[in-house]
Design a protein around this nucleic acid. Structure first.
Lengths: 128, 128
DNA sequence: GTTGACCTTCCAGTAACTGGAAGCACTATC
DNA sequence: GATAGTGCTTCCAGTTACTGGAAGGTCAAC
């Protein structure tokens, strides 16, 4: 398979796949013409990476998860730890965004949004 | 005031203030010794920026908000638009993170987290 | 043989800082 | 007056995970 094939099958852009090769997440062999030649295993890996990224795991987490996936001697506790840490970071991020949302909602609803200059949003940002 | 003073008063790191000057958000005059010399107005601006950033506004949004703040002819509708667009983006982000959280929570709870290799998290990432 | 799609590499840019090095400036102390 | 310590300056590089684009080689079809 050429890169375009695995791109459409994995859902990842070709650019991203080249990038993943550059940083060592995958290393497809090359054909005579210099084209990357992907097998089912590489496609499987890329799909794995796509799903992990879709769950918000960082590239470094993905690297670890992939290594654990390929390590028969892994302990599920290692995987769980990575996922739990990530979950915790996500929950912190959600809390932070919810706090912003709450403040913003309040500000937006208090602003007339008309053609006059007075604005509670700016007043709040400029408060002393 | 030197940069260290406005840094502690505004809560922004000195590095960040220099960066804000570099991108034209503030432009404090310089003293004889080449040091940046901040007045109350610059401090006020920096505090404004700090609060806007804390609400998650992008630097470009901050630039717009600051310009509106300093424009007596502004219409509150302009400010409200910026805030509403930002609020919408935040809500989308929250929804995305909540979806990740939901999946992750489920996966984490289904993983034994022991010394055995079998792991539902990896199974899910590797599913066909 | 030429068009068009697909592949290659390389370089630059994104957002918003942050860390660190090298080197002045200022203040306090001996 | 020398020195130490802190604070200021600029400049360069690195962060995250790609993404866009240019210049050019390859392949299949007509």
């Amino acid at each position: 398979m050429n890169i375009g094939d695995v791109a459409s099958k994995s859902g990842l852009p070709a650019k991203t796949i080249r990038y993943y090769e550059e940083i060592g997440l995958v290393c497809p062999p090359r054909g005579e013409n210099g084209y990357r030649s992907f097998g089912e295993d590489e496609l499987h890996k890329l799909a794995f990476l796509g799903r992990a990224r879709a769950l918000g795991f960082s590239i470094e987490d993905c690297r670890i998860l992939l290594a654990l996936y390929e390590d028969d001697g892994r302990e599920s506790a290692q995987v769980k730890k990575v996922a739990e840490d990530h979950l915790k970071r996500i929950e912190e991020k959600i809390a932070q965004l919810q706090s912003m949302r709450s403040t913003l909602k309040h500000l937006v609803s208090s602003c007339a949004g008309d053609n006059r200059p007075n604005c509670p949003i700016l007043n709040d940002l400029a408060r002393d």
